[in-house]
Design a binder for these strands. Structure first.
Lengths: 152, 152
DNA sequence: ACCACTATTGAGACAATTTCTCAATAGCGA
DNA sequence: TCGCTATTGAGAAATTGTCTCAATAGTGGT
């Protein structure tokens, strides 16, 4: 499994911070590193239950925050009501294009935009290292739908 | 008052759509057009109460949606839990830099980034006309705070 | 100005999502 | 293996926004 390195990093982080290595934590880690897309807490909870783990909702939320604190998972509100989580795949820094209507998320990489973001952050005294970037728009389907069935 | 034109447009919109011109609607309009920053529904409600209006929470939410439908107000989730509203000041199209920690919002204009956004939208089949754009990062104060008081 | 019609409002119930509480459980060091 | 205490589970609570429905108040026609 390609997440062996991250799994070890997670376990190290737990140990070095005096946290315990529990079955729930490892199951959640495995689940989110199996998903190669943006998932919310409910989906993770449901997937874990489907696989026979008896883990509670509160534990999922708590340990997602822990994974974020480890730097292994990104937690974002991508225009929708729920937080979405994605595991960080080493090196590959990308940004998000989000459909404001259906919530669909597309990742993209644009070095040019990254450079501009840094510049804008710097110009306004924001950290150029912790930025994250979203474009919210309407995907082709939702544009088509809104043209068929006009605004209201 | 500089919002006379928008106020008239609002009233016209109401009339032409068979909606009534109520005291609550005008009070809300005036309140949001007085605020030159991003406000949430609770702030607007509180401000209106402070000024002696007896308006309910539901009415504030309903009529904010109405103002959005008129194209006079923008409603956005800027990384935070609550929706933020801003009145649209004619012509001036801007994007947002948001502090992920304290929620502070700074507006910026960058024609270069706007062009790149359009290109990315087009490349992925998203509408280049309905886009909106956010950079989430940490403002100087929050960076300083997180360095003083390390991550947890 | 008055009436009747019905859109709008207010108050609180409801819904969706996330966080908190606290007794029971289970890692972990000795 | 034992004991300490971090972690968990279940459900309560908090947060934010939407919905319901009876009461109120704009509006167009007299």
């Amino acid at each position: 499994m390609s997440s062996q390195r991250e799994r070890a990093a997670f376990i190290d982080h737990l140990k070095s911070h005096g946290h315990r290595i529990t079955g729930e934590r490892l199951a959640l880690f495995d689940e989110i590193f199996e998903q190669h897309r943006h998932v919310d807490a409910e989906e993770l909870l449901a997937a874990l239950h489907r696989k026979g783990h008896r883990i509670s909702r509160a534990t999922v939320y708590r340990n997602l925050d822990l994974l974020v604190a480890c730097g292994l998972v990104r937690k974002q509100r991508l225009g929708q009501r729920r937080y979405l989580y994605e595991h960080i795949h080493a090196g590959q820094k990308h940004d998000h294009l989000v459909c404001r209507s259906c919530g669909r998320v597309v990742e993209f990489v644009s070095p040019g935009i990254t450079a501009m973001q840094r510049e804008i952050c710097r110009a306004h005294g924001f950290s150029p290292d912790h930025h994250q970037f979203q474009i919210l728009s309407l995907c082709a389907e939702c544009v088509a739908a809104s043209e068929t069935q006009p605004s209201h």
